Amino acid sequence: MAPPAGRTAAASGPEPSWSTAAPAPAPDFVVALGEPEGYDDRGRGRALGARVRPRVAVAAACVVLGVGLIGGAATGSWLTGDSGGGGTAGTYATAGTLWHSVPVDRLFPPTVDGRGAGPGGADRTWTRLAVAPDSGCVNAFDPLLHKVLAPVGCARLLRATYTDATQSFVTTVGLLFTTADAPAMRSLATRFRTEDLARRTDLVPRPYPAPDTVAAAFGDRQRASWTVSVLTEAPVVVYAVSGWADGRAADTPQPAADAMKAGATTAAAQAGLGNEAQGLADRIERGFRTTAAPATEQPS
């Protein structure tokens, strides 16, 4: 498949690919996701007996306090994105399974508030138009982006398309759950950073044109701005791509980081489409971290 017109050619060399076989049977993502499993015995230790010596009781209390501080620090690092080397193997693996254990409305809320997310700090509100069917990663990306992401594999790709309060813009946000271990995710994140891959106009994610909505005409030619974030404490890539709701084509897509710069004069920048993509991606990523933190906590 040739890259869209106006985009640079791929580098030469063999192109790795995911399996084109149909994904393993799984519960339908839209209607069959269950509530996440809970955990018992999560924290409150029993009171020390009256006959425990004071010195021993003080030492025990210090141990409990220390464990609590360590657990709090671990949860805090997850929420802020400071993985401290990728987090523990247990929390990493658990985060990678949330695609089938967390309800769709937790991953892609029906309404997302974006206080201060618009140009000049204006508030934004996004309404979900539709969640894409769970179809795996086959044909989900342009060939070059497929090639870049291939080393981390694909367990599931979850996508939803939103519109702003005025229904002027549409944005698809995606959560790619990979099959990679933490070192592989760190390697991909490093490559995106050092090779500036998030700014290449031949590596723009594809949108989901939700049928029978204002996003029905949101195709490849309508991609105007985008952002990609590779997590290192979970096997997940978060991305968003935005465009106009009226179906107009974008001459050249502009990365959100550039479209949001002061003084940017492109059509995407002037319309605030960089803010649409970045603002929604940030909040979906933040929601994922918040949802994942309780699921990955270990009983104290």
Results as ranks from 00 to 15, higher is better:
6 G>Q: 09
6 G>E: 15
6 G>H: 12
10 A>T: 07
13 G>R: 06
15 E>Y: 05
18 W>A: 00
22 A>R: 15
24 A>N: 09
25 P>S: 14
26 A>V: 13
27 P>M: 14
27 P>S: 09
36 P>T: 05
38 G>E: 13
38 G>P: 04
44 R>A: 10
44 R>F: 05
45 G>M: 15
46 R>T: 13
48 L>I: 11
49 G>T: 15
49 G>D: 14
54 P>I: 12
54 P>D: 13
57 A>G: 14
58 V>K: 12
58 V>I: 13
58 V>C: 10
59 A>I: 10
64 V>E: 09
67 V>L: 13
70 I>S: 08
71 G>S: 15
71 G>E: 15
74 A>G: 02
78 W>A: 01
79 L>K: 10
79 L>H: 11
80 T>D: 08
82 D>V: 10
82 D>W: 07
86 G>P: 00
87 G>S: 12
88 T>E: 12
89 A>S: 09
92 Y>M: 00
92 Y>T: 00
96 G>V: 08
97 T>Q: 10
101 S>W: 03
101 S>C: 06
102 V>S: 05
102 V>G: 02
103 P>C: 02
112 V>W: 10
118 G>M: 12
120 G>P: 09
123 D>Q: 03
123 D>H: 04
124 R>W: 06
127 T>V: 13
130 A>C: 13
131 V>M: 08
132 A>N: 07
132 A>V: 10
135 S>I: 11
136 G>Q: 15
142 D>Q: 13
142 D>N: 12
147 K>L: 03
148 V>I: 11
149 L>Y: 03
149 L>T: 01
152 V>A: 02
152 V>Q: 02
153 G>W: 06
154 C>E: 01
155 A>M: 06
156 R>P: 00
158 L>I: 07
159 R>L: 14
161 T>C: 13
163 T>G: 03
164 D>Y: 02
164 D>L: 03
167 Q>V: 04
170 V>H: 06
172 T>P: 06
173 V>D: 00
174 G>W: 01
174 G>K: 00
176 L>W: 05
178 T>D: 09
178 T>L: 08
179 T>L: 10
184 A>K: 12
185 M>P: 01
185 M>L: 05
187 S>M: 10
188 L>M: 15
190 T>Q: 14
196 D>F: 11
197 L>R: 04
197 L>A: 04
197 L>V: 04
199 R>M: 02
199 R>Q: 05
202 D>Q: 14
202 D>C: 08
207 P>T: 09
207 P>K: 04
211 P>M: 00
216 A>I: 08
217 A>K: 11
219 G>M: 11
221 R>F: 03
224 A>T: 03
226 W>I: 04
227 T>S: 02
233 E>R: 08
234 A>N: 04
234 A>P: 02
235 P>V: 13
236 V>G: 07
238 V>L: 15
238 V>N: 09
246 D>E: 07
248 R>F: 03
249 A>G: 08
251 D>Q: 11
256 A>N: 03
257 A>T: 05
258 D>E: 11
266 T>P: 02
267 A>C: 04
269 A>S: 06
271 A>V: 04
271 A>P: 04
272 G>T: 00
275 N>V: 02
275 N>K: 05
276 E>V: 08
277 A>G: 06
282 D>Y: 09
284 I>Q: 00
287 G>V: 02
289 R>P: 05
291 T>V: 15
293 A>C: 05
298 Q>D: 10
